[in-house]
């Protein structure tokens, strides 16, 4: 899959969804059958759900002791401002990220630091209606199609492109997934991806003490909201003025121009605030560069 416009063109020509296209692509390029690919994705879906349930079940402190318990905190509260689905998406994203930070088992989507967004949004939407596991798996394939093209043409790594590459890509992936899940067109799915990714351009990767916790955990929850918003706009027929492939290109070039301090080195941004440095000192006993 070289570009999303090409993929969209093919999908329309064959009357397929993005998810179906991704299944075919995977089967062809990995020399497996479509059924094998679907089975593998089903396993990932189960792992995602297990992580959500585990994160909601017990408050999990992180390895560093700097975070944990927020998923439960948010889930206990009846939402006062958000709708149920948006509230759930944030809760699930937090739960998954807290499992990750406590050395639990998660599915990278596309990375461990951004692993809460896709399952958070997907399970919140799926549990709000009558969706089958098979439909959810197809939605994950749609997400994967978007992520695959981003990875091929830009980057999915915070160390290379900043957090826009991780959480931004995850938000774009999740947006496409839920648009397809609720029956939106492949066009709408990609418009949603474009809008989600546009809204994270320039996002720094600035983890405090170099750990995948602050700001990563809450950033996942908030990117889940972004994703739902982009999907909602796309389902209403709103389109992105900049085509999705060009947004991906812009993300790549913004990533290249971000200074090294904002690409996972903990050398800038939140990591270098007085409190950020204090936390790093309390963990390592010496100032981090």
């Amino acid at each position: 899959m070289d570009s999303l416009s090409e993929l969209l063109h093919e999908a329309k020509a064959q009357g397929h969804t993005l998810g179906q296209m991704a299944v075919l692509y995977e089967a062809e390029s990995s020399f497996c059958t479509p059924e094998t690919a679907i089975k593998q994705m089903m396993i990932h879906l189960d792992t995602m759900e297990a992580a959500i349930d585990k994160g909601l079940d017990t408050p999990l402190p992180s390895v560093s002791g700097q975070s944990g318990g927020d998923a439960q905190r948010l889930s206990r509260q009846n939402p006062r401002l958000l709708g149920t689905m948006a509230h759930q998406a944030m809760v699930y994203a937090l739960a998954t990220m807290e499992v990750n930070a406590s050395m639990g088992r998660i599915v990278a989507a596309p990375t461990a630091g951004s692993c809460g967004i896709v399952p958070g949004v997907l399970f919140a939407v799926a549990r709000s209606g009558d969706y089958t596991r098979e439909q959810m798996v197809q939605a994950l394939f749609a997400a994967a199609a978007v992520g695959q093209v981003i990875g091929q043409n830009a980057t999915l790594s915070g160390a290379q492109g900043g957090c826009q590459a991780e959480c931004g890509s995850a938000a774009a992936m999740a947006a496409a997934a839920v648009v397809e899940l609720v029956g939106g067109s492949p066009d709408a799915a990609l418009e949603a991806s474009a809008m989600a990714l546009k809204n994270t351009l320039g996002l720094a990767c600035d983890p405090v003490a170099g750990l995948v916790e602050i700001p990563c955990i809450k950033r996942n929850a908030l990117c889940a909201l972004l994703s739902l918003g982009a999907a909602e706009m796309a389902l209403a027929g709103i389109t992105s003025a900049i085509p999705v492939d060009e947004v991906i290109g812009a993300m790549d070039s913004v990533g290249r121009s971000l200074p090294a301090e904002l690409k996972e080195t903990a050398g800038g941004g939140l990591a270098q605030t007085p409190r950020g440095r204090h936390i790093a000192r309390s963990l390592y006993g010496e100032p981090k560069e």
């Binding site: 990995s30 930070a101 050395m103 639990g104 599915v107 461990a112 091929q152």
Partner: peptide, 22 residues
């Protein structure tokens, strides 16, 4: 080397960091 869709959704791993842990 092509990027598999399972490099993007997946792999399953133990966190917290795909680079520093998995």
């Amino acid at each position: 080397k092509h990027l598999s869709v399972f490099d993007v959704v997946g792999p399953a791993m133990i966190g917290p960091s795909s680079s520093h842990t998995a």
